[in-house]
Each structure stands twice: as C-alpha cells, then as structure tokens.
Design a binder for these strands. Structure first.
Lengths: 133, 133
DNA sequence: AAATGCAATGTTATAACGTAACAAGTACTG
DNA sequence: CAGTACTTGTTACGTTATAACATTGCATTT
C-alpha cells in the first residue's frame, strides 16, 4: 500500500508550511479535498497525531489549530507567540525557560512532562505597521 | 431582576471551588440543572466569560475546562500544573517567569498581552502514592 | 403612568472540533 | 492458501462553543 498515510502527512505538512497562520484540522481537510476527494476527519487527525508525535508540527492549544514547526524537527516544547491581529505565530526555543518552569513545578513535587506555553499579543509587524497605536 | 446572571456565576464558582479537578462547561451545566432546570449552554458560557474576565476562574486551554483560581482573585496569568494521572491542577504565580517570557517575545518585536502556561505531568501525590514507578 | 430605549437573559439552532467503533484492505508468515 | 497483524476508510456520534434572535426587566423621559 506504499503507505497512504505518509502521503497524507506530507501533504498536511506542506500545506501548513505554506500557511502564514495556523490552520484547524478542518481547514486542512478542505485543502486535502483538492487532491483526495473523499478524505474524512479521522484521516486528518491521524496525520496530525503522527506529525505532532514526530515534532514536525505543533498544536496550538489555545487556538485548536496546528502549525508547522519552524525549527528543524525533532520533538521539543516551544514558546509560541500568537498575534491576535494578523494571526501569525512565532516560535522560540528556550531550554532555560523550560528549566525554570520545571523547577517551579518540581518544587511542589510535580514531575513535568510537557510544557504548553502560548503568549498572546501583537507581533512586531502589526505593532509598527497598522496595529494598535 | 436582581441579576440572575450573578447568581449563576456564584453557583458556577462554588461548584468549581468544590471540585478537585477542572470541569468542562457541560459538566457545569449538569450541576446547574440541579437547581435551574432550564439553563442552556450560552448561559454557562456567559457566566464563565464573566468569571474569567474577573480573574475568579482560569480556563485550561489544553483541557477545554475551567478551574477556580486558587490565589485570591484579581486577574493574573498563572502557571498551571496538570496531573495526567489524577486530574488535579496546581497553580503557581511567578512574575519572574512572566517577565522572562515577555522579554523573549519582545526581543522579536512582539508585545505580549496574555500568557498561557500549562505544564502537563504527574503530581507529587500520584508519583509518591500510586503513580508511575 | 405610558412610551421609549437599553442592557441582560433566555432560547433555538447550528457551527466547529474531535474520536469511538467497526469495516475493509494490504501485507506478511507459515 | 489460511491466518494474523497492521493500516486505512467510513460511519456515526460525542463534545465544545457561539451566532442570532426573542424576551424580559428596568430606567428614563415626557
């Protein structure tokens, strides 16, 4: 079967990479219908699960949406900066911050496993160009 | 009308305070039906929005659920530690961490507004008592 | 008080997100 | 080929959230 799943995953990843903003699972589904008319929701979610597990994409918990990882692609926790104006998302990697967070949690006996860090605000372009004030 | 909404809000807050784990909007709806048979979803969401805005409760973005704020109650961003085993959530306040995160974001021109920080893992009780290893 | 207007609340319906459960296909093994 | 294990497709449904509009209560004006 030459791994149909992998083809879907490649395509999902390609669409996410070309998008300037995160896309929802159903947005992706729409895109897939261009080439695969009969894909259903679980297929997309399976592809997203595989890509997420592999670290190729990130899920934005506060947006119910997905974006391509901007930094190579082994699994890691990122800091995501979400512009409420244009919808773009920046990604930063900071082992230091993760360390500090882990330390905080551990101080109360908690063993961290995964960090969700999403900062909402306004990006530099929107601030400077046409943004708030 | 003596502010029906405020009564609902008090009740939602009371239920959340008594719960050892976060509750979904529809969990809360079930609880409300004990005393107000005909409440509908938007009513709960309006109460949740008001309470969230006031800082009395927090929304857990990665769980689609809500919890009572554990630290007094003026609006603030928290660090939430979510136990994947028992479902309990701990809350920590750390201006330092927020500062660091804001600094990181600002370095790329981003203006932060709200921080979502959710750490998934296993709490001290579950680790020690009956948890992993 | 009657009329007006506004804001809060109720109600219906539906949109958006996600997954369980099982069917069908494929490929490998003996 | 028969058996088995895994992947993919399909259907149906469960959960989360909100749009849109109706209604209610109350304050203000006249």
């Amino acid at each position: 079967m030459t791994k149909r799943g992998e083809e879907i995953q490649r395509q999902v990843l390609a669409v996410l990479r070309q998008s300037s903003t995160p896309l929802s699972a159903y947005d992706l589904l729409d895109h897939l219908w261009d080439s695969h008319p009969k894909i259903a929701a679980p297929t997309v979610y399976r592809a997203l699960a595989a890509l997420t597990g592999r670290g190729s994409i990130h899920r934005l918990e506060s947006l119910n949406a997905y974006m391509a990882c901007q930094c190579g692609s082994h699994p890691h926790d990122s800091i995501l900066s979400i512009c409420g104006d244009c919808g773009s998302v920046g990604e930063q990697v900071s082992p230091d911050v993760l360390e500090i967070l882990s330390g905080l949690a551990q101080a109360s006996g908690f063993t961290p496993d995964r960090h969700v860090i999403e900062v909402h605000g306004v990006c530099g372009i929107c601030t400077g160009g046409a943004g708030a004030a």
